[in-house]
């Protein structure tokens, strides 16, 4: 959830998505979903002469699972907020885990 929410704050900003086949696509973030699938518009592939496969494409959808890295605009990233959210989510995650364990124990006792 943390990264899904984070990406939503970057809609309209320019990012570079580096895929697991070494293709790097730069474009404006149009939308994102819970799987971190990404839609970009006004795209440009880096080193286009070497990788001309998308010359006639302006808008594209990238499957989240093929992403290696995303280069982010540093000025638009609030690191303090990210760190707070990471701690919060870790705490939530633990609570869910503990509850599941307790339920499993109770079920065993019965």
């Amino acid at each position: 959830m943390l990264f899904f929410s984070f990406y939503k704050t970057l809609v309209g900003k320019e990012i570079t998505v580096e895929l697991k086949n070494d293709l790097s696509i730069t474009g404006l973030l149009q939308s994102v979903d819970q799987f971190l699938n990404i839609k970009l518009k006004d795209i440009k592939v880096n080193e286009e002469e070497k990788y001309p496969y998308m010359i006639s494409v302006q808008n594209c959808f990238i499957r989240g699972s093929v992403v290696r890295y995303v280069h982010l605009p540093a000025g638009d990233v609030d690191v303090e907020t990210l760190q707070d959210h990471s701690r919060l989510e870790a705490r939530e995650q633990k609570k869910v885990q503990q509850q599941a364990q307790q339920q499993a124990q109770q079920a065993q006792q019965k």
Binding site: F3, K20, L36, V67, Y69, V70, H71, A74
Partner: peptide
Amino acid sequence: NIKMLFVRGDG
């Protein structure tokens, strides 16, 4: 060198 980078966990 990269200023700000998202790294996907499966790698």
